[in-house]
Design a protein around this nucleic acid. Structure first.
Lengths: 116, 116
DNA sequence: CTAATGCGTAAGTGATAACTTACGCATTGT
DNA sequence: ACAATGCGTAAGTTATCACTTACGCATTAG
């Protein structure tokens, strides 16, 4: 069982895996317990947990015959910060765009088709 | 050119696509411009932009002959909030664990004493 | 008009992902 | 010891992904 460092973003890409993480985040639990609450097999959950482990998003400790998984706040915080970087730089761009409405050098159409 | 609603988490899973988003977040730009800064072809960037569009993480407006892409703060904020939910519930679990065990121990391979 | 620019998309390909069943190992109870 | 429980992993299959090249459409310049 090698512990390859894995991209946490990729770990969160799969919906089932997010459900697994959500369950773990809600409270310590075992593999079988999670599998009982999800429409996938136990080995599938095991594989998802391995990915989450490699992404440093959860931890595991043996507790008697059970393997108990629990969330890892640090890992989640890394993602929070990264996302915040995106968000902040996006906000700056927004701000610049708002201020740059001065730019009247272009005759181009100002329509923008947007959703709802 | 259908605009399928797409999972923003999945959109962030690919490193190249995150680079594209980072570039867009840094400031409005065109497809060709992005492709010039990344080691992939222009069509590849186009496809990545489509995914980001479907995930509501960016917007696009025509400006003369160019298609100018810009970040979409709302989309990023959705992710921020979702991630915060994970984080908060993880913190709660952490807190409960700390109170329940009194053991300020750390990462993965820790031996635990059965308190029965 | 024609030519050039900028871009989206179709088509094809190799790699990876997510899932299943089957199996084997470790720990616990009798 | 043996049986049962809990779990990880190997093997195999199917679907999806990221990328490429080739093509076609729309807008603008001359």
């Amino acid at each position: 069982m090698q512990s390859v460092t894995r991209d946490p973003w990729q770990a969160l890409a799969d919906p089932t895996r997010r459900a697994v993480l959500a369950r773990v985040a809600r409270g310590p639990c075992s593999v079988t317990e999670i599998a009982g609450e999800l429409p996938v097999s136990r080995p599938a959950v095991s594989q998802h947990l391995k990915v989450l482990l490699d992404a440093r998003l959860i931890d595991v400790r043996r507790q008697g015959r059970l393997q108990v998984y629990r969330p890892r706040a640090e890992g989640l915080d890394v993602l929070r910060r990264e996302l915040d970087t995106f968000w902040r730089s996006a906000l700056l761009t927004f701000k610049d765009l708002a201020e740059a409405t001065y730019d009247a050098s272009s005759p181009a159409n100002e329509e923008i088709s947007d959703d709802q």
